[in-house]
């Protein structure tokens, strides 16, 4: 697996960082502009031909979205996790639907859940899970689901929320626990 990363570097692709998580799972960071070339190269020239998983993470502190592409080598079942960070405001990434047909589903979901744009992807913009959604995309970190529920979905009065920490602390009689 390491050799494939070396060849990546030799082909003028910039590998920002490498991290070995498990024996068969290596994570690399690449530049967002190079996503499509790197993935095309990996699919055509290396055994990492299978797009197993594809998702986004909202790093709101850095004002960035991280896109994670998990590629699998179907012979050895080694996993190569390719991470690229894109700007949170623009929220636009390259679409992979030409490389892998099932990427359409992931992009369809991310388009709704994160408000990401994938120019050219056939189903982005159609409703996926939500219907008649008028708020901010719900998986963004700044979407407050509790506030949303309090504002728009009526609840049965009388339901109590117990703070676990207070509750267990009181049960144990240890006031120390309340302030860690």
């Amino acid at each position: 697996m390491k050799t494939h990363i070396e060849t990546l570097k030799r082909h003028q692709f910039e590998v920002l960082w490498t991290h070995q998580q498990r024996a068969n799972l290596i994570q690399i960071g690449i530049k967002a502009e190079q996503t499509l070339p790197v993935l095309t190269y990996l699919k055509t020239h290396t055994p990492f031909v299978q797009l197993t998983h594809y998702s986004a993470v909202d790093w709101i502190e850095d004002n960035e979205f991280q896109l994670t592409y998990t590629l699998t080598n179907p012979q050895t079942y080694e996993i190569l996790m390719v991470c690229a960070r894109i700007d949170r405001e623009a929220a636009t990434a390259d679409s992979l639907h030409k490389l892998w047909p099932q990427a359409v589903t992931y992009e369809h979901e991310m388009g709704e859940m994160f408000g990401l744009k994938f120019p050219g992807s056939p189903r982005v913009g159609e409703p996926f899970n939500l219907e008649g959604w008028r708020d901010m995309p719900p998986m963004r970190r700044d979407f407050d689901t509790v506030k949303f529920v309090r504002d728009s979905i009526p609840e049965r009065p009388g339901r109590q929320a117990i703070n676990t920490r207070d509750y267990i602390g009181a049960e144990a009689g240890e006031k120390r626990l309340l302030h860690d």
Binding site: F143, T145, V149, E155, R156, R159
Partner: peptide
């Protein structure tokens, strides 16, 4: 269906059916 159950803070489900 009675009070939202464990999805009381979910943005996608209703919380009280008899409404």
């Amino acid at each position: 269906t009675i009070n939202g159950g464990m999805y009381w803070d979910s943005y996608a489900t209703m919380k009280q059916l008899d409404l």
